[in-house]
Design a protein around this nucleic acid. Structure first.
Lengths: 156, 156
DNA sequence: ATTTTAATGATAATGGTTTTCATTTTCATT
DNA sequence: AATGAAAATGAAAACCATTATCATTAAAAT
């Protein structure tokens, strides 16, 4: 987790404290909501879920907190092409960690997929290494999504 | 290219005509602009470029035409995280066809990369086949992007 | 406790994209 | 060539997710 002002090494020391961030109730609850789901929630989804436990929450705070968490590397922000961003914990109790997505262009549904075969991971590493060298590009992350039709939408 | 009303087989018969679409000047020029660049243009970029050849063009028409072309499968719509969509021809004279992207999170620059190694293509096919079977998901497309810092941004 | 600094939330603003609707253009038919 | 029906266009307004503003409140430091 990077220091608030952008300097300093990226250790994950506690969660917020120790890096200049304050752990407040809204932040706590937003993290709780994200920890307790496997869905791909939008900012407004999160706002509504938080609202039931903490009615005074403002949508602005949700956006601000999500931005903070993305910057801190605790959550990922995705775009599945429906005009709103989706957020999910990088690693959570529900979440098994890094995964890729199958996005249904029919209904907008999303399937997580993390059962990579060894060959897949190996090649990905190899590819990243090759690209880094060839283009002198320091890769920090990747996004892999497959688009198509889910079982349900194929029938219609 | 799918028939205008959504029915019918997806042949590419001519470009527009023969499928119920009309080939008009704005559409012609928008396609010309897309054919003549390797950049990743936004709707407004395209609007400005078209404007010099056809000043009466409206931004609305650009959006509408781009949507049409995406639906027809002639162009791809990408989101690189800067709040505006980018468009590029699926296959063009400049463009060598399918490729992946390196997205610099520093300056927003984008590097196209299409020199896949055989192993890479093979594994991708294999992965798609495996996923299709396992999740009964009909894959029609994929998106692969690597995020990181380009050579320039690494120095700063 | 008190002070300092950061976080919050209501509201307004932003900006890319869509809708609306009257007008114009295209294409098939006289 | 002229006509008429259907489709495409463009200007303006509407949309809507996200950001900025700013006065108020809460959290950590003193």
């Amino acid at each position: 987790m990077p220091w608030k002002d952008g300097t300093g090494p990226p250790w994950l020391h506690g969660k917020f404290k120790g890096c200049g961030y304050r752990m407040t109730m809204p932040r706590q609850i937003i993290l709780d909501v994200l920890s307790g789901t496997t869905e791909h929630l939008s900012a407004e989804d999160i706002y509504h879920k938080v609202h039931s436990a903490y009615p005074s929450i403002g949508l602005t705070t949700v956006y601000r907190t999500l931005e903070l968490l993305v910057h801190a590397g605790l959550i990922h922000k995705f775009d599945f092409g429906d005009g709103r961003a989706r957020y999910e914990l990088v690693e959570g109790s529900q979440n098994t960690g890094h995964h890729h997505h199958l996005v249904c262009t029919g209904c907008g549904g999303i399937i997580d997929y993390a059962d990579f075969i060894d060959q897949e991971i190996e090649l990905l590493k190899k590819t990243e290494k090759g690209l880094s060298k060839k283009y002198n590009f320091k890769i920090t992350n990747h996004l892999i999504q497959f688009y198509g039709l889910c079982a349900k939408c194929q029938k219609q």
